[in-house]
């Protein structure tokens, strides 16, 4: 981890935006995510049917003009259910990333800024946390707290936090060695002031790259846990939970798992592509950090 670009000035942001505008694929991904978010927010108006409305005369049907994505075991419209489930899946990913930031960022700052035994202690704990196979740790946490979406997202947040912690620590360490920080210290600025004024501005951009990628990772984790029945609990439904329930009807109505699965794959892909685009748009120095 070498030096980091100086605090982004106005021109830095402009340069970033100019670079990002050239990333066609990332722009598409961003567009897709915006449309998806709008669809999730306005699901009650956009969805063709009530996602809970049963129609026992039309169960487990394939895609048709009336039901674009087919119907499930109770005759409910799969397209409407996918649209409503997007709310749960998107919110769950946001929740997990926020939890990971809350757990990872403050100790990362402390470790980088204070150093010494505090740093050693925090880093050993991080190493231990990272030595767990991720999903197994999540399952263990859920075993203790009980299966629910919030508990699953707490578990995923804990899993993702070490990366944020290391990113914060590395950036803080490199900024702390800069001459202007030394100068600030010598005129008696407090650590809190230095963190606010010098460290945070430097960490924002690599953090955004990581947030975008981790939103995808969190979404996959939520889907996997809900698929296992350890995340979203009925009557709520996420894309992963839909695939989990559709599993039973795989031979009769594959559309039950095909469409929610595609929704997960495309959304996660969009988040990864966006992350790649953001990283490539950062300044060269910062790019090497993330």
């Amino acid at each position: 981890m070498s030096d980091v670009a100086a605090a982004p000035s106005q021109s830095g942001t402009v340069r970033f935006l100019r670079r990002f505008r050239r990333q066609t694929l990332s722009l598409w991904a961003l567009g897709f995510l915006i449309v998806l978010t709008l669809l999730a927010v306005f699901a009650p108006w956009v969805a063709p049917y009530d996602p809970l409305q049963q129609d026992l005369d039309h169960v487990l049907e394939g895609p048709s003009a009336d039901h674009w994505f087919g119907t499930d075991e109770l005759g409910r419209d799969v397209l409407s259910r996918v649209l409503f489930a997007s709310r749960v899946s998107l919110l769950a990913a946001v929740q997990a990333v926020l939890i990971a930031l809350a757990i990872g960022v403050p100790p990362g700052l402390v470790a980088g800024m204070w150093g010494g035994w505090v740093d050693a202690l925090i880093m050993r704990a991080t190493d231990a946390l990272m030595s767990f196979p991720p999903l197994i740790l999540a399952v263990a946490i859920i075993a203790v707290l009980g299966p629910s979406l919030t508990n699953a997202m707490i578990a995923v947040g804990v899993l993702l936090s070490p990366t944020f912690l290391r990113l914060m620590r590395a950036t803080t360490l490199s900024v702390a060695q800069e001459t202007y920080v030394e100068a600030a210290q010598s005129i008696g600025c407090t650590r809190g002031w230095i963190i606010r004024k010098h460290v945070l501005p430097n960490v924002v951009s690599p953090l955004f790259v990581q947030i975008s990628v981790f939103a995808g990772v969190a979404m996959l984790a939520e889907a996997g846990l809900s698929f296992l029945g350890l995340g979203t609990q009925p009557p709520e439904s996420s894309w992963g939970a839909m695939v989990g329930r559709g599993f039973r009807y795989i031979a009769h109505a594959p559309s039950l798992i095909v469409f929610p699965g595609l929704a997960i794959a495309v959304t996660v892909l969009a988040l990864y592509v966006l992350g790649d685009g953001l990283r490539d748009s950062l300044g060269r120095e910062t790019r090497q950090e993330s």
Binding site: A223, G240, V243, I250, I257, G261, I264, V268
Partner: peptide, 14 residues
């Protein structure tokens, strides 16, 4: 990129 984004349980089911 696609291989990374596809959930493994979904791939398995497919």
């Amino acid at each position: 990129s696609v291989g990374l984004a596809v959930p493994n349980f979904w791939l398995g089911l497919m």
